[in-house]
Amino acid sequence: MKSVFSLCVQMSRPSIILKFILGLLWGIIHLAISLFNLWSLLIYNIECYLISSGLLWKYRDLHLDRLKYLAIVVASKEAKNNMKIRQLLCWLSTIGVKYVCLYDIEGILKKSFEPAMNGLRDGKAGEYLDIGASVNYSHCGHKEMVIEWLSGSDGKEGIAKAANLLCSTYFSENTHGNGKREPTFTEADMASALKAVGCGGPEPDLLLMYGPARCHLGFPAWRLRYTEIMHMGPLKSMKYGAIVKALYNFSKKYQNYGKLGFQL
């Protein structure tokens, strides 16, 4: 059977017919998945509707005490949709989230929101959370919420900056001894260097990803270690019920080593 197959492949590899058949089958499989996805999207939308209308009891009482810090990652294309972002922030503050961090790789959110929020800058909250850029947001007339904006440059470039700082300290300490000691930085050194270059900050407990695929898009590594990453679909079709569901699922999570678990 094996040899028949290899013969078949060998003979018809250049032929267009085989390629056509493979392409057709591939297309049919993906079409079937699309139909299946459409069906599950319908179910999901009905569920979200039921949650937001308050008909599902278990979602009514949300325990947010474990959610200290929430991160939102938005795909570049969708980050330009200011209205949706405002709406999202509004919902989060209604739900009672206290600290939010918004991230997109190009820094579109940072550019479009930070100047507008400058007047509202709150130094105290920033100090408390070790974050440079934070503002108090009480736009919706609900409870106050601290927001931080991050971009791709706070990720790998931030680590490179911290590495420069560590290296220059190392050189200034070792110039006289001709630098015989091997550099032995620890993770704690790195964390404080990151803080010093303004790329430190708390690790979010939950990260909601808005975009076509589940992908963190370079969210700062030092703040992503044990973060639960949940994919929420495209921003343009975001739903209040979906956020409530994600927060509910998060409250049921258990971690062995992260902040949520008991250290063994």
């Binding site: 590495a163 560590l166 790195m190």
Partner: peptide, 23 residues
């Protein structure tokens, strides 16, 4: 393994490389 220790290890190696270049 963990990723943060990998990054710190890379920083140490870059630093050692720079030191050699300096020497």
């Amino acid at each position: 393994y963990n990723s943060t220790s990998e990054i710190v290890n890379a920083v140490n190696e870059v630093c050692a490389e720079r030191r050699e270049m300096l020497q």
